[in-house]
Design a binder for these strands. Structure first.
Lengths: 188, 188
DNA sequence: CTACGGGGAGAACGACCGTTCTCACATCCG
DNA sequence: CGGATGTGAGAACGGTCGTTCTCCCCGTAG
């Protein structure tokens, strides 16, 4: 067995961490599960991430980049700036329909460890602020009033929670309809 | 030390369970913490709730009754049926401002144990459906179209999540403003 | 060829936690 | 009075988990 170079070991670890942490919750996954899921030895795991919390941090950071990247890629396919705001909810719908969807990783992580782990609490806050900022940018570019941004953000958060807990994708369409009313209430 | 009668033992246990589970998360609280917080011996604890999951279940059930009771009591102080719908967000605001507020217990519990415990997943679902039903009743009694109900519900859920993670009560006012626009978009 | 340094597999350790057991004592009923 | 019952305090047990250690193999440099 050829020794694994650090980069691919890191990738495999984060892949396994993301699968397992997201599907089962962070506390329900042991380091040994990560080892089994990644094929990377425990020794190497601990040499790359000296404690579980650091693996969790890396997992959430990588997922944040990817999640916001996928959202932005989807939204940018839409031309009309006002439609872009609404496209956020179309993206949520496709996300909710993905097999294995279990709600928002940061909402879940915050519920699990927000009171215990400063790192998780901070990453959840940062992720939500970044998402809220992104929405605010879309609203601004659509020439809509700034007060609309947090409203759209709250609709999106509510849709994530409801879809995660109730196990249905209906909240995407419902939030979309609500956002449509909000946006068009400011139509020229 | 006079032996405690079962009812007050149960009450003390649930009081301690609610304080601790809500503040720290369910998995972060041990049975011994419950014993210490309640003053009820471990033996009695296990005779009343033979497993931790049953104590968790009782905690969530009692909190559900109380939470929806407090909401209803607040909303019923408002006379105008249309204002009642918006009063939900005023109630959220006062809740968010309570010391020790840490988000919605069911959202947090679902994030923590939804993937692991069927009981917690079911109670979270039931609680959210009950809240959505309550909102739907308010919307119906205000003579507003049914489609508005899930939109108001999602705004409320989003406000809870955002307030819990970001640690501010601003989402209550923001969601209130959004709901106001939605409601008045159907004004006669 | 050989000494060595890194890596893999997995045992081992120490702490924690849900649950049960021990034991001494108080209480109640004959 | 005396024995059965139930209770509290806390020790004990069994399992899990994060983390570290042991041991052995291999590739390589001198």
């Amino acid at each position: 067995m050829a020794p694994l170079d650090p980069d691919t070991a890191r990738t495999r670890l984060l892949d396994a961490a993301e699968d397992l942490f997201y599907a089962r919750g962070i506390q329900a996954v042991g380091m040994d599960d990560i080892r089994g899921g990644s094929g990377v030895s425990l020794k190497r795991l601990y040499s790359l991430y000296p404690a579980k919390e650091q693996l969790v941090e890396a997992y959430l950071q990588r997922r944040d980049v990817r999640w916001r990247g996928r959202l932005a890629a989807f939204v940018e396919q839409v031309d009309d700036p006002r439609e872009r705001v609404l496209a956020v909810f179309d993206w949520l719908g496709t996300w909710f329909r993905e097999p294995g969807f279990r709600g928002c990783a940061w909402i879940n992580g915050h519920g699990e460890l927000g009171a215990t782990s400063d790192v998780v609490a901070r990453l959840a806050r940062e992720h939500k602020l970044a998402f809220a900022d992104y929405v605010a940018g879309l609203v601004r570019e659509a020439g809509l009033p700034e007060a609309l941004a947090p409203q759209v953000f709250l609709l999106a958060e509510g849709a994530m929670v409801a879809a995660g807990i109730l196990g249905t994708d209906a909240p995407a369409a419902q939030a979309h309809a609500a956002a449509e009313v909000l946006v068009s209430s400011f139509a020229a």
